[in-house]
């Protein structure tokens, strides 16, 4: 390498982009998605209103591709490439960080597959007009249900661990203490998303709407 080179290697940019897209927009979208889906916890109507609101945003297709599908494809695709370049050794070195390293790869793959299927069933087959009834119907299928649960947990874990990784890999949490704090934050996010995600699934599966109490009494 030339001593005057200051431009980073392409692999550096791609890795940073991979790390960054995991948080923005992918992580942020996940948060938004959980948030809007939690409308189901209020009522089917509320859910339908919220999703219709999202389904009718201007420039929808562009926004979807630019802010969601393409970043996700890149994050997932490049993630698999990274996975293939690594060689897990957790059986020889069963340390927590190493477990996270391995789990992050498997949960990433599961999440990627799940999201693809989820998009296919809830976005593609419904022509982008999925309703509460569509989702609730899918949840009646035990296989679908299982995949929902696994997918939600994997995505939540992946996001939580991803936040920890992000904070470490961008040097935002540098000291041992800061990295421990970052780890706790990641764990908190992972658990919170898992809980909310499962609650949403229960809501669809059992028509359970605990927050309907917020609705004005009829």
């Amino acid at each position: 390498m030339s001593s005057t080179a200051t431009r980073p290697d392409t692999s550096y940019l791609l890795r940073k982009l991979h790390s960054f897209t995991g948080i923005l927009p992918v992580g942020a979208f996940l948060a938004e998605h959980f948030w809007s889906n939690s409308a189901a916890l209020v009522s089917a109507e509320k859910y339908n209103t919220v999703s219709q609101e999202l389904q009718t945003i201007p420039f929808r297709l562009i926004v979807e591709w630019a802010a969601i599908f393409l970043p996700m494809l890149f994050h997932g695709g490049y993630g698999i490439y990274i996975w293939l370049r690594g060689k897990s050794n957790v059986s020889a070195y069963p340390w927590v960080g190493n477990w996270l390293y391995v789990t992050q790869r498997y949960t990433g793959l599961i999440a990627f597959a799940y999201i693809g299927w989820h998009l296919y069933t809830e976005r593609w087959l419904t022509h982008g007009r999925s309703t509460y009834a569509n989702v609730a119907a899918d949840m009646r299928n035990p296989w679908y249900l299982t995949f929902f649960v696994v997918g939600v947990l994997a995505s939540s874990f992946h996001l939580g661990a991803g936040i920890w990784n992000f904070l470490c890999k961008w040097g935002l949490a540098a000291t041992v203490k800061a990295q421990q704090a970052a780890g706790r934050l990641g764990a908190l996010v992972g658990v919170a998303f898992s809980v909310v995600g499962i609650l949403i699934i229960i809501s669809f599966r059992y028509d359970w709407h605990p927050f309907s109490v917020y609705l004005p009494s009829k």
Partner: peptide, 25 residues
């Protein structure tokens, strides 16, 4: 900046995936 330039070159710091085994070993 020269050292940083080198460490963001091929095989540089970007390859770290935060498994953190190094610090234990």
């Amino acid at each position: 900046s020269e050292r940083i330039a080198a460490i963001i070159g091929p095989g540089g710091i970007q390859e770290c995936a935060n498994a953190q085994n190094c610090v234990h070993a």
